[in-house]
């Protein structure tokens, strides 16, 4: 009889659900509070509004739902929930004791990865789905008709959650320290835009006559959280002294990031498969990343602190500023280089 390869382990899944219930519990509570409870709460106020026409009432109710959906699809909050889920389900990778225990069990790395990945993802999407279903039910009972907005909001939230969760899992495979996960994930999420800002500022200081060149561009997709905060949401229009909802924007961006998440997923599993368990506890688990981290910290830290320091000192003269920025950048760069070396 051919043996069946299993990619999923029920025992580990059950362990994740029972042990990390505060995380999915908080996310579930938040989604239930935000959609069904707040929709119901909003509906109560209209009992006393007898002088509104049906159309005005419909519009007001739509505004209520979409205001709540703005928060529901907020990339910042979804990012935080994703981080919490990743840190929980993959926490066993960050201590030698737990890493050795789990990797000595009769399960493959594929089973461990798939089971833990799915556990964490369900922590996010199931509460979102429950919030949506409960919100829909309450909306119908309270006479709201804009159920399609709720559904679109759900797709947005799930797409953004899927991306943030999967990309954080990818980052999590490169480090052996639990608290490095949120730090590195946040840095990578703002790295492109942050570097652009720093670069523009340094160029303006160091190159006489060159104007400030920092502006938004399409390449800002390389800083997902910044891009999503800026480019996704619900469009409101103002007409006849009233606010009218015109629809969601950024759907293509969300879809694009969701597709990118699939690439991150495959890459994350590949890194996990190759990872040495003995790197648990190390800041960076992949050797060739260490010099990039070291020099990156030196460059970014040097530039940032140099500009900040000069700003605190109040140096305005061009010649002095040039010299000061240059000298402090080298000094702070060296400090950051050795600090990075110490923590690696």
């Amino acid at each position: 009889m051919k043996s069946k390869t299993s990619y999923f382990n029920k025992t580990i899944f059950k362990k994740n659900i029972t042990h990390y219930w505060p995380i999915w519990g908080i996310i579930l509570f938040w989604n239930l509070f935000l959609l069904p409870i707040m929709i119901y709460d909003s509906s109560l106020q209209y009992r006393y509004f007898t002088n509104m026409t049906q159309a005005q009432l419909e519009q007001q109710r739509l505004n209520d739902i979409t205001s709540l959906l703005q928060v529901y699809i907020s990339p910042g909050l979804l990012f935080v929930f994703a981080l919490a889920a990743v840190m929980a389900v993959f926490s066993y990778l960050y201590s030698t004791r737990t890493a050795y225990t789990f990797h000595a069990l009769p399960v493959t790395r594929l089973q461990l990865f798939v089971t833990n990945y799915l556990s964490g993802l369900l922590f996010l999407v199931v509460p979102e789905a429950i919030g949506f279903l409960a919100g829909t039910l309450v909306s119908v009972v309270c006479g709201y008709t804009s159920i399609n907005y709720l559904f679109t909001g759900l797709l947005f939230a799930m797409g953004v959650s899927f991306f943030f969760y999967t990309s954080t899992v990818f980052v999590a495979m490169f480090t052996g320290q639990l608290f490095a996960v949120p730090v590195l994930t946040l840095i990578l999420n703002v790295l492109f835009v942050g570097s652009k800002f720093l670069g523009s500022a340094m160029v303006e200081i160091l190159s006489y006559g060159v104007a400030w060149g920092f502006s938004s561009s399409r390449l800002d997709i390389l800083s997902p959280i910044v891009y999503l905060i800026r480019e996704t949401g619900i469009q409101f229009e103002y007409s006849d002294h009233t606010t009218v909802v015109s629809g969601f924007y950024g759907a293509k961006a969300v879809a694009g990031y969701a597709v990118a998440a699939l690439v991150f997923l495959a890459a994350a599993y590949y890194v996990y498969k190759k990872k040495h368990v003995e790197t648990a506890g190390s800041l960076i688990c992949v050797p060739w990343i260490s010099p990039i981290f070291r020099w990156g910290a030196a460059l970014c830290g040097g530039c940032l602190f140099s500009m900040g320091f000069c700003s605190i000192l109040g140096i305005v003269s061009n010649k002095t500023l040039f010299a000061a920025v240059f000298v402090f950048a080298v000094l702070f760069g060296a400090v950051f280089f050795f600090a990075a070396q110490m923590i690696l």
């Binding site: 362990k15 042990h19 004791r97 050795y100 225990t101 000595a104 069990l105 009769p106 493959t108 790395r109």
Partner: peptide, 22 residues
């Protein structure tokens, strides 16, 4: 390595034992 069938045949008690919290 990466063989659950073999790993199911042994029990390992390390010097530093891990148990789940609570």
């Amino acid at each position: 390595y990466e063989n659950p069938k073999v790993k199911a045949k042994f029990a390992f008690i390390p010097d530093d034992i891990f148990y789940f919290m609570q």
